[in-house]
Design a binder for these strands. Structure first.
Lengths: 187, 187
DNA sequence: CGAGCCATGTAAACAGTTACATGATTCT
DNA sequence: AGAATCATGTAACTGTTTACATGGCTCG
Protein backbone atom coordinates (compact mmCIF):
# COMPACT_ATOMS: atom_id res chain seq x y z
CA UNK A 1 0.00 0.00 0.00
CA UNK A 2 0.89 3.66 -0.28
CA UNK A 3 0.73 6.04 2.66
CA UNK A 4 -2.48 7.35 1.17
CA UNK A 5 -4.01 3.87 1.07
CA UNK A 6 -3.15 3.40 4.75
CA UNK A 7 -4.71 6.77 5.51
CA UNK A 8 -7.98 5.64 3.94
CA UNK A 9 -7.90 2.35 5.85
CA UNK A 10 -7.66 4.35 9.06
CA UNK A 11 -10.73 6.38 8.08
CA UNK A 12 -12.58 3.14 7.93
CA UNK A 13 -12.95 -0.17 9.76
CA UNK A 14 -9.23 -0.53 10.58
CA UNK A 15 -9.47 2.92 12.15
CA UNK A 16 -11.85 1.59 14.81
CA UNK A 17 -8.96 -0.40 16.27
CA UNK A 18 -6.06 1.93 15.46
CA UNK A 19 -5.80 5.31 13.84
CA UNK A 20 -3.16 7.76 12.63
CA UNK A 21 -3.44 10.97 10.64
CA UNK A 22 -1.32 11.48 7.53
CA UNK A 23 1.46 13.63 9.07
CA UNK A 24 2.21 10.63 11.26
CA UNK A 25 1.96 8.01 8.51
CA UNK A 26 4.41 9.34 5.93
CA UNK A 27 7.42 9.92 8.23
CA UNK A 28 6.70 6.63 10.03
CA UNK A 29 6.79 4.68 6.75
CA UNK A 30 10.21 6.21 6.03
CA UNK A 31 11.42 5.19 9.49
CA UNK A 32 10.08 1.65 9.01
CA UNK A 33 11.89 1.54 5.69
CA UNK A 34 15.16 2.71 7.29
CA UNK A 35 14.71 -0.01 9.90
CA UNK A 36 14.20 -2.59 7.13
CA UNK A 37 10.68 -3.56 8.19
CA UNK A 38 9.06 -2.39 4.97
CA UNK A 39 10.36 -1.87 1.44
CA UNK A 40 9.23 1.16 -0.51
CA UNK A 41 9.13 1.30 -4.25
CA UNK A 42 8.47 4.32 -6.44
CA UNK A 43 5.80 3.53 -9.00
CA UNK A 44 4.42 5.83 -11.71
CA UNK A 45 0.96 7.33 -11.34
CA UNK A 46 -0.47 8.71 -14.58
CA UNK A 47 2.11 10.30 -16.84
CA UNK A 48 3.99 12.79 -14.65
CA UNK A 49 3.24 11.81 -11.07
CA UNK A 50 4.47 8.94 -8.95
CA UNK A 51 3.66 7.32 -5.65
CA UNK A 52 5.53 5.20 -3.14
CA UNK A 53 4.26 1.65 -2.71
CA UNK A 54 5.28 -0.20 0.44
CA UNK A 55 5.42 -3.92 1.18
CA UNK A 56 6.31 -5.68 4.41
CA UNK A 57 9.70 -7.47 4.46
CA UNK A 58 10.61 -10.74 6.19
CA UNK A 59 12.23 -8.68 8.95
CA UNK A 60 8.96 -6.74 9.18
CA UNK A 61 6.94 -9.94 9.64
CA UNK A 62 9.39 -11.06 12.35
CA UNK A 63 8.99 -7.70 14.06
CA UNK A 64 5.20 -7.97 13.79
CA UNK A 65 5.30 -11.39 15.48
CA UNK A 66 7.50 -9.91 18.20
CA UNK A 67 5.12 -7.00 18.74
CA UNK A 68 2.04 -9.22 18.95
CA UNK A 69 3.83 -11.56 21.40
CA UNK A 70 5.10 -8.68 23.51
CA UNK A 71 3.05 -8.29 26.69
CA UNK A 72 1.27 -5.00 26.85
CA UNK A 73 1.79 -2.98 30.04
CA UNK A 74 -1.64 -1.55 30.88
CA UNK A 75 -1.81 2.24 30.48
CA UNK A 76 -3.02 4.53 33.27
CA UNK A 77 -6.51 5.90 32.80
CA UNK A 78 -7.52 9.17 31.18
CA UNK A 79 -11.24 9.22 30.71
CA UNK A 80 -12.68 12.67 29.91
CA UNK A 81 -16.32 11.60 30.11
CA UNK A 82 -16.05 9.89 33.49
CA UNK A 83 -13.99 12.81 34.74
CA UNK A 84 -16.83 15.12 33.77
CA UNK A 85 -19.45 12.82 35.26
CA UNK A 86 -17.53 12.94 38.57
CA UNK A 87 -18.17 16.69 38.66
CA UNK A 88 -21.72 16.86 37.29
CA UNK A 89 -22.81 18.60 40.51
CA UNK A 90 -21.08 21.71 39.15
CA UNK A 91 -23.53 22.06 36.26
CA UNK A 92 -27.35 22.13 36.03
CA UNK A 93 -29.04 18.73 35.65
CA UNK A 94 -30.11 19.44 32.07
CA UNK A 95 -26.50 20.17 31.04
CA UNK A 96 -25.50 16.80 32.49
CA UNK A 97 -28.44 15.26 30.65
CA UNK A 98 -27.30 16.76 27.35
CA UNK A 99 -23.81 15.34 27.90
CA UNK A 100 -25.15 11.85 28.58
CA UNK A 101 -27.62 11.96 25.70
CA UNK A 102 -24.79 12.81 23.32
CA UNK A 103 -22.61 10.07 24.81
CA UNK A 104 -25.49 7.61 24.43
CA UNK A 105 -26.27 8.60 20.83
CA UNK A 106 -22.61 8.44 19.84
CA UNK A 107 -22.01 4.98 21.28
CA UNK A 108 -25.33 3.60 20.05
CA UNK A 109 -24.15 4.57 16.58
CA UNK A 110 -20.72 3.04 17.33
CA UNK A 111 -22.30 -0.25 18.41
CA UNK A 112 -24.29 -0.30 15.17
CA UNK A 113 -21.22 0.42 13.00
CA UNK A 114 -18.85 -1.95 14.82
CA UNK A 115 -21.41 -4.73 14.82
CA UNK A 116 -21.90 -4.25 11.08
CA UNK A 117 -18.15 -4.57 10.50
CA UNK A 118 -18.06 -7.66 12.71
CA UNK A 119 -20.82 -9.32 10.69
CA UNK A 120 -19.10 -8.44 7.39
CA UNK A 121 -15.81 -9.89 8.61
CA UNK A 122 -17.61 -13.05 9.68
CA UNK A 123 -19.04 -13.28 6.15
CA UNK A 124 -15.53 -12.55 4.75
CA UNK A 125 -17.06 -9.58 2.97
CA UNK A 126 -14.14 -7.16 3.30
CA UNK A 127 -11.57 -6.22 0.67
CA UNK A 128 -8.69 -6.12 3.12
CA UNK A 129 -9.58 -9.51 4.60
CA UNK A 130 -10.08 -11.03 1.14
CA UNK A 131 -6.64 -9.78 0.06
CA UNK A 132 -5.16 -11.30 3.21
CA UNK A 133 -6.88 -14.67 2.72
CA UNK A 134 -5.82 -14.75 -0.94
CA UNK A 135 -2.15 -14.97 0.08
CA UNK A 136 -2.67 -17.50 2.90
CA UNK A 137 -3.17 -21.32 2.86
CA UNK A 138 -6.85 -22.18 3.13
CA UNK A 139 -6.31 -24.20 6.33
CA UNK A 140 -5.55 -20.93 8.17
CA UNK A 141 -8.54 -18.97 6.87
CA UNK A 142 -10.95 -19.88 9.66
CA UNK A 143 -8.43 -18.87 12.34
CA UNK A 144 -7.64 -15.53 10.70
CA UNK A 145 -11.32 -14.68 10.33
CA UNK A 146 -12.02 -15.77 13.90
CA UNK A 147 -9.37 -13.41 15.32
CA UNK A 148 -10.58 -10.38 13.35
CA UNK A 149 -14.15 -11.12 14.40
CA UNK A 150 -13.01 -11.53 18.00
CA UNK A 151 -11.22 -8.15 17.96
CA UNK A 152 -14.38 -6.48 16.68
CA UNK A 153 -16.49 -8.31 19.24
CA UNK A 154 -14.24 -6.57 21.78
CA UNK A 155 -14.85 -3.10 20.48
CA UNK A 156 -18.58 -3.79 20.28
CA UNK A 157 -18.49 -4.84 23.95
CA UNK A 158 -16.68 -1.70 24.95
CA UNK A 159 -19.09 0.56 23.06
CA UNK A 160 -22.03 -1.35 24.54
CA UNK A 161 -20.65 -0.73 28.05
CA UNK A 162 -20.69 3.01 27.27
CA UNK A 163 -24.31 2.76 26.10
CA UNK A 164 -25.35 0.92 29.26
CA UNK A 165 -23.51 3.42 31.44
CA UNK A 166 -25.07 6.45 29.73
CA UNK A 167 -28.55 4.90 30.14
CA UNK A 168 -27.83 4.31 33.83
CA UNK A 169 -26.83 7.98 34.10
CA UNK A 170 -30.01 9.21 32.43
CA UNK A 171 -32.09 7.15 34.87
CA UNK A 172 -30.09 8.68 37.74
CA UNK A 173 -30.69 12.21 36.43
CA UNK A 174 -34.41 11.46 36.13
CA UNK A 175 -34.48 10.36 39.76
CA UNK A 176 -32.49 13.40 40.91
CA UNK A 177 -34.75 15.86 39.11
CA UNK A 178 -37.86 14.22 40.61
CA UNK A 179 -36.26 14.52 44.04
CA UNK A 180 -35.43 18.19 43.55
CA UNK A 181 -38.96 18.87 42.24
CA UNK A 182 -40.38 17.18 45.33
CA UNK A 183 -38.02 19.30 47.38
CA UNK A 184 -39.31 22.48 45.72
CA UNK A 185 -42.97 21.45 46.19
CA UNK A 186 -42.26 20.77 49.87
CA UNK A 187 -40.55 24.15 50.37
CA UNK B 1 -3.38 20.77 48.13
CA UNK B 2 0.25 20.79 47.14
CA UNK B 3 1.50 19.29 43.89
CA UNK B 4 2.69 16.35 45.93
CA UNK B 5 -0.78 15.81 47.42
CA UNK B 6 -2.26 15.77 43.91
CA UNK B 7 0.39 13.30 42.84
CA UNK B 8 -0.68 10.93 45.61
CA UNK B 9 -4.33 11.31 44.71
CA UNK B 10 -3.47 10.23 41.18
CA UNK B 11 -1.76 7.12 42.52
CA UNK B 12 -5.03 6.22 44.12
CA UNK B 13 -8.76 6.23 43.42
CA UNK B 14 -8.78 9.58 41.57
CA UNK B 15 -6.11 8.10 39.31
CA UNK B 16 -8.57 5.50 38.01
CA UNK B 17 -10.43 8.33 36.25
CA UNK B 18 -7.56 10.69 35.46
CA UNK B 19 -3.82 10.51 35.97
CA UNK B 20 -0.74 12.69 35.59
CA UNK B 21 2.86 12.13 36.68
CA UNK B 22 4.67 14.80 38.68
CA UNK B 23 6.61 16.45 35.83
CA UNK B 24 3.22 17.35 34.38
CA UNK B 25 1.64 18.45 37.65
CA UNK B 26 4.08 21.10 38.88
CA UNK B 27 4.36 23.15 35.67
CA UNK B 28 0.61 22.84 35.11
CA UNK B 29 -0.13 24.25 38.58
CA UNK B 30 2.06 27.24 37.74
CA UNK B 31 0.19 27.74 34.48
CA UNK B 32 -3.19 27.48 36.26
CA UNK B 33 -1.94 30.05 38.73
CA UNK B 34 -0.82 32.41 35.94
CA UNK B 35 -4.28 32.00 34.40
CA UNK B 36 -5.86 32.86 37.77
CA UNK B 37 -7.69 29.53 38.17
CA UNK B 38 -5.80 28.56 41.34
CA UNK B 39 -3.99 30.56 44.00
CA UNK B 40 -0.68 29.25 45.31
CA UNK B 41 0.65 30.10 48.74
CA UNK B 42 4.06 29.28 50.13
CA UNK B 43 3.74 27.63 53.54
CA UNK B 44 6.57 26.46 55.87
CA UNK B 45 7.30 22.76 56.25
CA UNK B 46 9.41 21.95 59.28
CA UNK B 47 12.02 24.59 60.07
CA UNK B 48 13.93 25.11 56.81
CA UNK B 49 11.73 23.69 54.06
CA UNK B 50 8.58 25.01 52.49
CA UNK B 51 5.84 23.82 50.18
CA UNK B 52 3.35 25.45 47.86
CA UNK B 53 -0.29 25.05 48.81
CA UNK B 54 -2.88 25.65 46.07
CA UNK B 55 -6.58 26.50 46.33
CA UNK B 56 -9.12 26.96 43.57
CA UNK B 57 -10.27 30.53 42.89
CA UNK B 58 -13.75 31.76 41.88
CA UNK B 59 -12.46 32.05 38.32
CA UNK B 60 -11.24 28.46 38.65
CA UNK B 61 -14.70 27.24 39.70
CA UNK B 62 -16.22 29.10 36.75
CA UNK B 63 -13.71 27.46 34.44
CA UNK B 64 -14.48 24.06 35.97
CA UNK B 65 -18.20 24.55 35.27
CA UNK B 66 -17.35 25.54 31.72
CA UNK B 67 -15.17 22.46 31.23
CA UNK B 68 -17.82 20.09 32.59
CA UNK B 69 -20.51 21.70 30.41
CA UNK B 70 -18.27 21.61 27.32
CA UNK B 71 -19.27 18.79 24.97
CA UNK B 72 -16.52 16.27 24.54
CA UNK B 73 -15.59 15.43 20.95
CA UNK B 74 -15.04 11.65 20.91
CA UNK B 75 -11.41 10.66 20.32
CA UNK B 76 -10.37 8.25 17.58
CA UNK B 77 -9.49 4.77 18.74
CA UNK B 78 -6.08 3.46 19.72
CA UNK B 79 -6.47 0.09 21.35
CA UNK B 80 -3.22 -1.91 21.65
CA UNK B 81 -4.86 -5.10 22.94
CA UNK B 82 -7.50 -5.31 20.20
CA UNK B 83 -4.84 -4.42 17.65
CA UNK B 84 -2.81 -7.41 18.85
CA UNK B 85 -5.86 -9.65 18.93
CA UNK B 86 -6.49 -8.75 15.26
CA UNK B 87 -3.13 -10.31 14.42
CA UNK B 88 -3.09 -13.30 16.78
CA UNK B 89 -2.66 -15.58 13.74
CA UNK B 90 0.94 -14.37 13.62
CA UNK B 91 1.82 -15.99 16.95
CA UNK B 92 1.39 -19.52 18.38
CA UNK B 93 -1.93 -20.16 20.13
CA UNK B 94 -0.30 -20.39 23.54
CA UNK B 95 1.27 -16.94 23.15
CA UNK B 96 -2.17 -15.55 22.38
CA UNK B 97 -3.49 -17.46 25.40
CA UNK B 98 -0.84 -15.88 27.65
CA UNK B 99 -1.82 -12.42 26.40
CA UNK B 100 -5.50 -12.99 27.11
CA UNK B 101 -4.85 -14.57 30.48
CA UNK B 102 -2.86 -11.51 31.52
CA UNK B 103 -5.55 -9.23 30.17
CA UNK B 104 -8.17 -11.18 32.08
CA UNK B 105 -6.21 -11.23 35.36
CA UNK B 106 -5.47 -7.52 35.12
CA UNK B 107 -9.09 -6.49 34.51
CA UNK B 108 -10.50 -8.93 37.06
CA UNK B 109 -8.28 -7.16 39.58
CA UNK B 110 -9.41 -3.78 38.21
CA UNK B 111 -13.09 -4.71 38.59
CA UNK B 112 -12.40 -5.71 42.19
CA UNK B 113 -10.54 -2.47 42.99
CA UNK B 114 -12.97 -0.15 41.17
CA UNK B 115 -15.98 -1.87 42.72
CA UNK B 116 -14.41 -1.47 46.16
CA UNK B 117 -13.93 2.27 45.57
CA UNK B 118 -17.50 2.55 44.32
CA UNK B 119 -18.84 0.90 47.49
CA UNK B 120 -16.68 3.12 49.70
CA UNK B 121 -17.91 6.25 47.91
CA UNK B 122 -21.50 5.09 48.33
CA UNK B 123 -20.79 4.72 52.08
CA UNK B 124 -19.11 8.16 52.06
CA UNK B 125 -16.00 6.44 53.37
CA UNK B 126 -13.37 8.50 51.50
CA UNK B 127 -11.26 11.37 52.83
CA UNK B 128 -11.50 13.39 49.64
CA UNK B 129 -15.29 13.01 49.47
CA UNK B 130 -15.67 13.82 53.17
CA UNK B 131 -13.61 16.99 52.72
CA UNK B 132 -15.81 17.92 49.78
CA UNK B 133 -19.07 17.28 51.66
CA UNK B 134 -17.81 19.25 54.67
CA UNK B 135 -17.77 22.46 52.63
CA UNK B 136 -21.13 21.86 50.88
CA UNK B 137 -24.74 22.36 52.06
CA UNK B 138 -26.22 19.06 53.22
CA UNK B 139 -29.04 19.23 50.67
CA UNK B 140 -26.47 18.65 47.90
CA UNK B 141 -24.66 15.72 49.53
CA UNK B 142 -26.80 12.97 48.00
CA UNK B 143 -26.34 14.38 44.49
CA UNK B 144 -22.57 14.73 44.87
CA UNK B 145 -22.23 11.18 46.16
CA UNK B 146 -24.51 9.85 43.42
CA UNK B 147 -22.35 11.38 40.66
CA UNK B 148 -19.08 10.03 42.05
CA UNK B 149 -20.67 6.59 42.44
CA UNK B 150 -22.03 6.83 38.89
CA UNK B 151 -18.59 7.69 37.48
CA UNK B 152 -17.09 4.65 39.21
CA UNK B 153 -19.96 2.48 38.04
CA UNK B 154 -18.80 3.47 34.56
CA UNK B 155 -15.23 2.40 35.04
CA UNK B 156 -16.41 -0.87 36.60
CA UNK B 157 -18.56 -1.48 33.51
CA UNK B 158 -15.67 -0.83 31.19
CA UNK B 159 -13.32 -3.13 33.10
CA UNK B 160 -16.05 -5.79 33.19
CA UNK B 161 -16.38 -5.56 29.39
CA UNK B 162 -12.63 -6.32 29.16
CA UNK B 163 -13.05 -9.33 31.46
CA UNK B 164 -15.95 -10.67 29.38
CA UNK B 165 -14.04 -10.15 26.14
CA UNK B 166 -10.90 -11.89 27.43
CA UNK B 167 -13.03 -14.87 28.57
CA UNK B 168 -14.65 -15.00 25.13
CA UNK B 169 -11.15 -15.05 23.62
CA UNK B 170 -9.95 -17.88 25.83
CA UNK B 171 -12.98 -19.95 24.81
CA UNK B 172 -12.16 -19.22 21.17
CA UNK B 173 -8.52 -20.30 21.65
CA UNK B 174 -9.72 -23.50 23.31
CA UNK B 175 -11.91 -24.24 20.30
CA UNK B 176 -9.14 -23.44 17.84
CA UNK B 177 -6.61 -25.65 19.58
CA UNK B 178 -9.10 -28.56 19.61
CA UNK B 179 -9.66 -28.04 15.90
CA UNK B 180 -5.94 -28.01 15.15
CA UNK B 181 -5.40 -31.12 17.30
CA UNK B 182 -8.17 -32.85 15.36
CA UNK B 183 -6.45 -31.70 12.17
CA UNK B 184 -3.16 -33.23 13.33
CA UNK B 185 -4.82 -36.50 14.32
CA UNK B 186 -6.49 -36.65 10.91
CA UNK B 187 -3.20 -36.02 9.05
C1' DC C 1 22.29 8.12 61.53
C1' DG C 2 20.04 5.86 57.92
C1' DA C 3 15.76 4.63 55.52
C1' DG C 4 11.73 6.10 53.70
C1' DC C 5 8.87 9.77 52.80
C1' DC C 6 7.87 14.69 51.45
C1' DA C 7 8.55 18.04 48.00
C1' DT C 8 9.84 20.13 43.63
C1' DG C 9 12.02 20.73 39.89
C1' DT C 10 14.63 20.32 34.69
C1' DA C 11 15.71 18.02 30.24
C1' DA C 12 15.04 15.15 26.60
C1' DA C 13 12.42 12.31 24.01
C1' DC C 14 8.32 10.57 22.07
C1' DA C 15 3.44 10.70 20.55
C1' DG C 16 -0.18 13.02 18.52
C1' DT C 17 -2.84 17.00 16.52
C1' DT C 18 -3.64 20.99 13.68
C1' DA C 19 -2.39 24.16 10.31
C1' DC C 20 -0.16 25.23 6.20
C1' DA C 21 1.31 23.87 1.61
C1' DT C 22 1.75 21.83 -3.02
C1' DG C 23 0.64 19.65 -7.22
C1' DA C 24 -0.94 15.85 -10.35
C1' DT C 25 -4.97 12.96 -11.81
C1' DT C 26 -9.54 11.74 -12.94
C1' DC C 27 -14.17 12.52 -13.74
C1' DT C 28 -17.97 15.34 -15.22
C1' DA D 1 -12.56 23.98 -17.18
C1' DG D 2 -13.54 23.00 -12.53
C1' DA D 3 -14.33 19.83 -8.73
C1' DA D 4 -13.16 15.95 -6.28
C1' DT D 5 -9.73 12.83 -5.35
C1' DC D 6 -4.96 11.10 -5.11
C1' DA D 7 -0.61 11.87 -3.06
C1' DT D 8 2.94 13.73 0.00
C1' DG D 9 5.01 16.58 2.56
C1' DT D 10 6.70 20.47 6.59
C1' DA D 11 6.06 23.26 10.85
C1' DA D 12 4.38 24.35 15.10
C1' DC D 13 2.29 23.07 19.01
C1' DT D 14 0.42 20.26 22.77
C1' DG D 15 0.45 16.38 25.64
C1' DT D 16 2.83 12.66 27.89
C1' DT D 17 6.60 9.82 29.50
C1' DT D 18 11.15 8.77 31.23
C1' DA D 19 15.38 9.99 33.11
C1' DC D 20 18.09 12.84 35.88
C1' DA D 21 18.53 15.70 39.97
C1' DT D 22 18.21 17.79 44.58
C1' DG D 23 17.38 18.30 49.36
C1' DG D 24 14.73 18.61 53.69
C1' DC D 25 11.73 16.00 57.14
C1' DT D 26 10.36 12.26 60.30
C1' DC D 27 10.76 8.15 62.67
C1' DG D 28 12.99 4.28 64.61
Amino acid sequence: MTGFDLMRQFDDSVGYVWHAPHPQIYPELRRLEDAGFVAGEEVPRGTHAKKRLYSITDAGVTELRRLVADVEEPRRERDPMRLKASYFEYVPLDVARTQLERHLAYFEERVRVYEEVRVRLQARDSDLLKARLAITPEADHATIVAFKVFAYAGIVRRAQAEVDWAREGLVLLEKLSETSLAQIRRD
